[in-house]
């Protein structure tokens, strides 16, 4: 499989493979990071840190531990959250707790030009609050199922099926 080859090339410090992987995942990571830090300059700074960390620690990835996407997603979420915990960041930013990724999608003008974006906006507008929260915590914030279950005060089984249904709905919109 092409992705496996790319990843193993990347682990052998192939710069071209690294660039290819960057192109595959950078937008996604930028979205996740921006959603956490809510500042474009800081987000770009964190982006650099994330991919530099990925390059330097490429040996720590192994396919049996999870998807490569999930591996880099974890690095991105952790780096962004670390950033929000820094003293400088706390001093300059207000409380972000009440914000969800949905706000960005609904206000962002940069989305207008892609069909995916139109679909996603539509999806977001009819998403139930329960979907928004579960997606926010599991994908954008990196909560474990147990953490999500506690945060949303729901059994793990409910989290799983609800999330499954929400993602199913997303897939029908963006993957057709």
């Amino acid at each position: 499989m092409q992705l496996d080859t790319l990843v193993s090339q990347f682990q052998k410090k192939d710069e071209k493979a690294f660039e290819a992987l960057y192109n595959m995942y950078s937008a996604s990571m930028q979205g996740v990071i921006y959603n956490i830090v809510r500042d474009q300059d800081i987000a770009e700074e964190v982006m650099q840190d994330v991919f530099i960390k990925a390059w330097n620690n490429s040996a720590s990835y192994a396919p049996e531990k999870g998807r490569f996407f999930t591996w880099i997603l974890n690095i991105a979420r952790n780096a962004a959250i670390d950033k929000t915990r820094s003293k400088a960041f706390k001093n300059s930013r207000k409380n972000l707790d009440a914000e969800y990724f949905v706000d960005i999608l609904q206000t962002s003008e940069s989305l207008e030009d892609t069909t995916d974006a139109i679909g996603i906006k539509k999806f977001v507008s009819k998403l139930a609050k329960k979907c928004i929260k579960v997606i926010e915590l599991l994908y954008f914030k990196g909560f474990t199922q147990k953490e999500a279950s506690e945060a949303l005060d729901m059994p793990i089984g409910t989290i799983k099926t609800r999330n499954r249904n929400c993602i199913k709905e997303l897939r029908t919109i963006v993957l057709e």
């Binding site: 950078s26 930028q30 959603n35 770009e44 996407f69 999608l105 962002s108 940069s110 963006v174």
Partner: peptide
């Protein structure tokens, strides 16, 4: 398919870059 859908959803939250991030990464 799940991964692909999640990538599209999260990408939608990305703001347009002010700088060329990858060239800065390569430089560093």
């Amino acid at each position: 398919e799940i991964e692909s859908a999640v990538i599209k959803l999260t990408s939608a939250a990305a703001q347009p870059s002010k700088t060329n991030i990858f060239s800065q990464i390569k430089e560093k």
